[in-house]
């Protein structure tokens, strides 16, 4: 038993390093997508203190819209543009209809409202697009679909080109976001709102504009995530479960930390894959990916309540 837990997995890793690399690569790709979804959460949380449960469903909704529009005969890139327009309209609608009347309500109320939005989008999406699994328009968007074969240590490592593309696009998106947040006026406004609501309002930052903007950015992130994940697994409401994975990422990285979201996402993506392959499947009957990330985050937080990247808080009376 102890051997199975503490020795055998590591012996297996050492025996087949190419397979270990493959596992880590798969984990890295999922991790990037978790990080992207977590980033959407962080942006919205920082600027409005809203814990946006709808982030996951926005991924599905964006992907479905894209595929649906293309199915109508619209060229792929125009479909992307139209989908972005839809996400913008969604951001404006949510701000107008849901957020504005709920300004100043307790956190839990706003959180519940985003669950309401989630249900609304699920129901609406099913009616408009139907519930069956659809194929992402990968080739039409010019994403390469071949694979790269590497032979480290005489073994075999298969990297799908669409995964490589996803990693590169995600990285570019993150860089673009960081530049936007740090270098532009609007980006600084978003960060200011996160630091101090009242103060930001008093220097003339418009709450409404910022909210529409962050929800729209979250929509763009959702679309990118949706394309990348859809290319791997097809597009359906089952995608929604990956959104839950962003939650332990947030616990580890902190609700407000962009760096935390990225590093936490990658960490969780890789660790849960490792655990599943080397411990979960041989010892626990598999499918441990449903809970591993949560339990990991829980254990870490027990010992570091401020998360991995938060600062220790001195409580005051």
């Amino acid at each position: 038993m102890l051997n199975d837990i503490f020795i055998k997995p590591f012996a297996d890793m050492a025996a087949a390093p190419d397979f270990l690399l493959q596992v880590l690569w798969e984990g890295l790709v999922s991790g990037i997508l978790y990080a992207l979804i977590a980033l959407g959460f962080v942006l919205i949380y920082r600027s409005s203190r809203i814990f946006n449960f709808a982030q996951g469903i926005m991924v599905v909704f964006a992907a479905l819209t894209l595929v649906g529009l293309h199915a109508l005969g619209i060229p792929a890139w125009i479909s992307v543009a139209l989908t972005l327009a839809v996400m913008f309209a969604l951001a404006v609608t949510i701000e107008r209809v849901v957020l504005r009347p709920l300004v100043g309500q307790p956190d839990i109320i706003l959180f519940m409202a985003t669950i309401g939005i989630t249900l609304f989008l699920i129901g609406g999406g099913e009616i408009i697009f139907g519930g069956e699994n659809k194929v992402m328009i990968t080739e039409e968007l010019g994403i390469p679909t071949g694979s790269v074969l590497l032979e480290p240590w005489g073994g075999l490592l298969i990297l799908e080109q669409k995964d490589i593309t996803a990693v590169l696009v995600a990285a570019a998106l993150v860089v673009a976001l960081l530049v936007f947040l740090n270098r532009t006026r609007m980006g600084r406004a978003i960060r200011a709102l996160g630091d101090d609501h009242q103060a930001a309002l008093s220097v003339g930052i418009s709450l409404q504009t910022v909210w529409v903007l962050v929800w729209f950015i979250a929509g763009i992130i959702a679309l990118v995530t949706g394309i990348a994940w859809g290319a791997r697994a097809g597009v359906s409401f089952a995608l929604e479960v990956i959104a839950y994975k962003a939650l332990p990422v947030l616990m580890l990285g902190g609700l407000e930390s962009i760096t935390g979201a990225i590093i936490g996402g990658l960490m969780i993506g890789m660790l849960e894959k490792l655990f599943e392959i080397y411990w979960g499947q041989p010892l626990l009957g598999g499918n441990t990916e449903t809970w591993f990330a949560f339990v990991l985050a829980l254990v870490v937080l027990l010992f570091r309540p401020q998360g991995l990247f938060g600062e220790r808080i001195i409580e005051r009376v």
């Binding site: 709920l102 109320i109 519940m112 409202a113 989630t118 249900l119 609304f120 699920i122 129901g123």
Partner: peptide, 14 residues
């Protein structure tokens, strides 16, 4: 149903 429940949640919260 799902849609309406979602909308109602938002409505009642408001």
């Amino acid at each position: 149903n799902v849609m309406i429940v979602g909308a109602l949640i938002v409505f009642f919260l408001i």
